[in-house]
């Protein structure tokens, strides 16, 4: 029997801001919502922006602050992509919940408890268009007693009629110093020490996504103990060390096919995920100055083709080899067309 230890909560949940004013860097939204808290008046909302910028956090925080723990269960319906959200759910569950009338707005203690319910639709961009269409009328019919909060990454996937019914807020990616502040705060609370370079590594591997940064941090802390170096973070995040990508690029530049083949074999044997490799190779290619735009374009095209093939489930080794061979031909100005292909 395994000893059961205190089940550790993910830090992402533990350090999720509980109040609107703690949400970092999204001033505009925070201002509007603080106003809402005072007047208890709130339009339909649409939050969009890249992952890990605080959209869900904000929605949950405002719901909690409006209703308090007691009423929260009966007033808020939260659905995300892992729940079934086909057109049937919209027609039944959402509509039923939206239709229920609520009592008059009695202020309970510190909570305003306005006379409407909130439905939070997380990851709304993965809803089908039909389901979204079915929502249109529901939103208007029950607007007296229900407010909708849509949360999504890509606003273009939300149909125009829905978007036009909502107040839209864009969530910006977090800049490095705000992220560092949060991370250092967590490190303090958990008693971790970060080595000097680790902080900047963490922001570069997580690319403005605070949730990802915190997940990596927790992973590293569990695996490597309380003192964390940038190497540990790279190994937890699944990123590929820069030397490896550069070795591949150098081999392409060199123009020797067998050498490149050897490098590709090594990458596969080391177990690096090739999709990650393509992403990092892309960064290298875009940043390099000494090649022409046309060469860059060609390389990017081959990267894109390979990425699609990988998604279809093609073999990693062959795809990477194909990319490397294409890159080599572009870099060394070999002919692009195959000469013996009839």
């Amino acid at each position: 029997m395994a000893p059961l230890l205190q089940s550790s909560q993910p830090w992402v949940e533990k350090y999720r801001p509980k109040q609107i004013k703690d949400v970092a860097h999204q001033d505009e939204v925070v201002r509007v919502l603080t106003n809402t808290l005072e007047t208890a008046n709130c339009p339909h909302m649409l939050f969009y922006g890249p992952p890990g910028t605080g959209k869900t956090t904000t929605a949950l925080a405002i719901a909690h602050q409006l209703y308090g723990p007691e009423l929260y269960k009966s007033r808020v319906l939260e659905l995300n992509a892992s729940d079934d959200r086909g057109i049937n759910v919209v027609r039944t569950k959402i509509k039923d919940f939206a239709a229920v009338a609520v009592g008059s707005g009695q202020r309970q203690g510190v909570y305003p408890c306005p006379p409407y319910k909130i439905i939070i639709l997380d990851e709304a961009d993965s809803m089908t268009e039909d389901a979204q269409n079915a929502l249109r009328r529901t939103m208007e019919t029950y607007s007296k007693v229900t407010r909708f909060f849509f949360i999504c990454n890509y606003i273009s996937r939300i149909i125009e009629p829905l978007a036009s019914r909502c107040a839209k807020f864009r969530f910006k990616p977090l800049p490095e110093e705000i992220m560092s502040n949060r991370i250092l705060h967590i490190c303090n609370e958990e008693g971790l020490t970060l080595e000097t370079e680790a902080l900047s590594t963490l922001s570069s591997v997580s690319q403005g996504d605070l949730r990802r940064a915190i997940t990596y941090l927790q992973g590293a802390a569990r695996l490597f103990g309380s003192s964390i170096s940038s190497k540990d973070l790279i190994s937890v995040s699944g990123a590929i060390p820069r030397e490896v990508t550069e070795a591949i690029y150098a081999a392409c530049k060199n123009g020797d096919f067998d050498l490149a083949n050897k490098e590709v074999n090594d990458v596969i044997a080391e177990g690096y995920p090739v999709s990650q490799m393509l992403a990092q190779l892309f960064e290298v290619v875009v940043e390099v100055d000494d090649i022409s735009d046309e060469q860059k374009a060609r390389i990017c095209k081959s990267l894109a083709t390979a990425d699609k093939c990988l998604v279809d489930g093609a073999d990693e080794y062959l795809q990477l080899l194909d990319v490397v061979s294409n890159t080599m031909r572009s870099l060394c100005n070999m002919p692009q067309e195959f000469s013996y292909d009839i």
Binding site: A306, A314, D322, S325, N326
Partner: peptide, 13 residues
């Protein structure tokens, strides 16, 4: 080599 490895990737896909 370039040509053959391209086609290998193509047909494997």
């Amino acid at each position: 080599k370039h040509e053959v490895c391209h086609w290998a990737a193509y047909y494997e896909h």
